[in-house]
Computed example of a mutant assay.
Amino acid sequence: MISAAAGDSTEQVIFLVLMGVVIVAGLTLTIVRAMRSTKSSEEQMARLAAELDGRSQVCIRKIVYTPHQPGRYA
């Protein structure tokens, strides 16, 4: 009788620990996805290309494109 009660307690602790791990993992993935979604697609592609090429650093340039306007010199 005593060992059965102790077994239930152990199973509950294991269950709670595993559920805690699942919740923390889900929360972490949600935060990572939210942070990545705030970056521009160009920046995301540059980081992905660097990761696939095996580079540890990424140089991201911001290019400002202004179309030619008559009477204005760039």
Rank of each mutant, 00 (worst) to 15 (best):
S9T: 14
E42W: 02
V58T: 15
V24N: 04
M19A: 15
G20D: 09
Q57K: 07
M19N: 15
V17E: 09
I31N: 09
M1H: 09
V64K: 14
I31M: 07
R61G: 00
L27K: 08
S3L: 14
G71F: 03
A4D: 10
S9D: 06
V13D: 11
V21K: 02
G20V: 08
G71V: 04
Q57W: 08
R33E: 13
R55P: 01
M35S: 08
I60V: 14
A50W: 01
R61F: 04
E51L: 11
H68L: 12
P67R: 11
S56L: 07
A34P: 02
P70Q: 14
T66N: 05
I63P: 00
V17I: 15
L27G: 10
R55N: 11
Y65R: 15
L27W: 11
E11R: 13
I31Y: 13
R72Q: 07
E11P: 00
A50P: 00
V32T: 12
A25M: 05
Q69V: 15
Q57A: 03
E51K: 15
A25Q: 05
G54V: 00
K62P: 01
L52K: 13
L16M: 14
A74S: 12
R61K: 07
R33A: 15
A4C: 01
L29E: 10
T10N: 11
G71I: 03
I60W: 05
S3D: 15
R36E: 13
S56V: 01
G26M: 11
